[in-house]
Amino acid sequence: MSPDTFRTLIAGVTRRIAARPLDQDLAGWLNAEYPASGAAWAELADACCTGVKEGWLCEREAGGIRYGRIFKALPETHGFSVDVVSMTDIAGPHHVHPNGEIDLIIPLTEGATFDGHPAGWCVYGPGTAHRPTVAHGSALVLYLLPEGAIQFTKQEAAA
């Protein structure tokens, strides 16, 4: 596995979703087309795990979260940027998805969830926001962001 091979693998997915609205119908379609029990999902998960192990994914670390943007929004990825994060029982920084966000959830610990979702896909529509949270262990999450758009927000200190 190399970054170029990884980009080609991701482009196989982004080609199929580039013209679709980011909504719950897309989440259902992704979970049907690339189910967590299927070979295509396993290939994507293995590629992410390999990239982390080889050091070309999640090459940065801050606040207990390993992360990295492997590709800016490119024509080859049909206008999606590609980020991968590695999280263990932690909530990440709050952010807004101006154009939406598509997440591939890869539990590394059996039962680990991302924002309450098990292995598979979740989709956030344009204008949504969250504090990404991995619970019940460790997980990798691959983020596809249309046009690479993300806006980190300042949160008020907890009272």
Rank of each mutant, 00 (worst) to 15 (best):
G92N: 06
W56V: 11
H94L: 15
W56M: 12
P126L: 03
G51W: 02
R60V: 00
A112L: 00
G68P: 02
S81D: 10
V13G: 02
G127N: 13
P3H: 06
G125H: 07
H130Y: 02
E147H: 12
G111N: 12
S138M: 08
G92H: 07
D4L: 04
A40Q: 14
F6V: 03
G38Q: 11
C122K: 01
V52T: 07
A159E: 11
P118H: 09
R60K: 15
L142V: 12
G125I: 06
N31I: 12
V84L: 13
H130G: 08
A42W: 01
C48S: 09
G51P: 06
A27D: 11
A32H: 13
H136D: 10
A157C: 07
A119L: 09
L57Q: 03
G148I: 06
R60I: 01
P98T: 11
T113F: 02
D25N: 15
A42P: 06
A139W: 00
Y67N: 09
A158P: 09
P75A: 15
D89P: 03
P21N: 11
D115H: 12
G120H: 08
L9F: 01
M87N: 04
T109L: 05
G64F: 00
I17S: 11
T133Q: 07
Y143A: 05
F71P: 03
Y143W: 08
D46N: 12
E101N: 12
A45M: 09
F152R: 10
G116L: 11
E76M: 04
T14F: 03
R20I: 05
I105T: 09
G120C: 10
L9Y: 01
M87C: 11
H78I: 06
T113G: 04
C49F: 01
H117K: 13
